[in-house]
Amino acid sequence: MSRTRHRSPTDWGWQLVAGGLALLFGLPLYWLFTSSLRPAGSPPPRTVEWFPHAATLTNYQRIFALAPFGHYLLNSLIVASLAVPLTLLTASLAGFAMARAPVPIQRSLLLFSVTLLLIPTAALWLPRYILFARLGLLDTWLPLLAPTLMGSNALYVLLFYWSFRRISPELFDAARLEGSSTFGLWWRIGMPLVRPTSLVVLILSFLAYWNDFLTPFLYLKSESRYLLPVGISLLHQMDTTQFPLLLAGAVIMTLPALVLFWAVQHTFWYEGRFSELAHTDEV
């Protein structure tokens, strides 16, 4: 099927609508950046200001002086860089095992995973808190990292499962004949072939850990272990009106997520058809 590319009026109309929507969705971010450049403490604006008059980067310096912001940043990076590889490991292993399991087991694992998806884990913070408290694990990063054990989210496991299922079994059989172990199949045959899925899980899990407010907010007690979202929410309570300063903090927190997303966003727009890819042995 070929789509002709000619500049018709509807095409221009489409560009206009899509562009307008993109602008609308970009507007909060634009205001975030520009407002963070306003000198903190300067009188609040009274008229529309598309770019602050005396734009300055001093807020970005001051915020590091006001709070151990670098420390929070580092902690957040450490937690995310522990959580993401662990998530990739456990989720891909589980997904691989599911895809390679005998059909009846595969079915029950699928049901199990979907059930997990249907339990809103975010609503489980209360019993989880009591559980971790009784284990004496408050004020450590363990409660934050614990979900990596189960691949962080049943969805990631399912994504890997679907991807591994698309790989032709002959490939595995051939490798098996050459003496490869099951872990070898996963690592040498499976993982290289599901790289796009790994990338998607990587970005999704990074965002999940990097953005999470509630978990670190509940579990961390010592300032030395705070993560960025907690640090910023504390700053916010200290002073609700030094907004440019707070927004500078928000920019610092948002940038890594933005950069990572825009770097790999092309993997999100997979336009192929499952029917063309999915290999034929239906469950």
């Binding site: 993109a22 969705f25 971010l29 948002t254 966003q265």
Partner: peptide, 24 residues
């Protein structure tokens, strides 16, 4: 693709930052 990414962008903003932006 650019438009799609733009639509997705607010979703990647951390909740805390997102709340602060809107408060402002």
């Amino acid at each position: 693709r650019f438009y799609r990414a733009a639509i997705y962008t607010p979703t990647v903003i951390p909740d805390v930052a997102y709340a602060l932006i809107w408060l402002w």
